[in-house]
């Protein structure tokens, strides 16, 4: 019993965090890139429900998958129980790792494989904005919310905050499902 408690206290969760973060990052990157290509292939004023938008429907759920996977791996790997607070911490870390890896994947893709895609997405967003019949002032304000082509620090920080929070919540749930102390 004492041995088990020592293991639960000392077992490192970083491998689990990395695995959860990596899986979430790959899923997010693939969805993001597929969505970008489908966006630039569509008309800026199109309003029908496309495959790209159907993918977006699950982005919320899939974006939070890292915390759930990380807590499951941590509990199964060491066969331990731990409090949900620790699950939230593991989930938060998995979310942050997912953002870092996802940013790297996106950077590699948009720099080495297809350097044109960022500019195409930006141009599409501007064209979509112009199709909305806004005043010049409104246009200028709205443009401020469209990220410049390439990796934006603001976008990365926002993603880190949102995905960190969502994965912390999924880590809470994961800890309860896989490592409940009750």
């Amino acid at each position: 019993m004492e041995n088990e408690q020592m293991t639960a206290e000392n077992a490192s969760y970083w491998t689990s965090v990395f695995i959860g973060g990596l899986i979430a990052a790959v899923v997010l990157s693939v969805l993001g890139l597929v969505s970008q290509y489908m966006t630039v292939a569509s008309e800026p004023t199109g309003s029908s429900f496309t495959v790209s938008q159907a993918i977006g429907t699950f982005a919320c759920l899939l974006g939070a998958i890292g915390g759930f996977i990380a807590t499951r791996h941590y509990a199964k790997e060491f066969d331990i129980t731990f409090p949900i607070g620790k699950g939230a911490l593991i989930g938060l870390m998995a979310g942050l790792v997912a953002v870092v890896i996802s940013t790297l994947i996106t950077w590699v893709w948009t720099t080495l494989i297809d350097p044109e895609i960022n500019q195409a997405v930006y141009d599409w967003a501007i064209a979509n904005l112009e199709a909305q019949n806004m005043t010049d002032d409104q246009m200028e304000m709205a443009k401020g919310f469209i990220p410049e082509p390439g990796i934006s620090i603001v976008t990365v920080l926002i993603s880190a905050a949102v995905l960190g929070i969502l994965n912390a919540i999924s880590g809470l749930v994961g800890a309860k499902v896989f490592a409940s102390e009750d």
Binding site: I55, A59, I158, V162, L163
Partner: peptide, 9 residues
């Protein structure tokens, strides 16, 4: 909208 852009269409 920027905040939820990564996780919602």
């Amino acid at each position: 909208h920027m905040v939820f852009d990564p996780v919602c269409h």
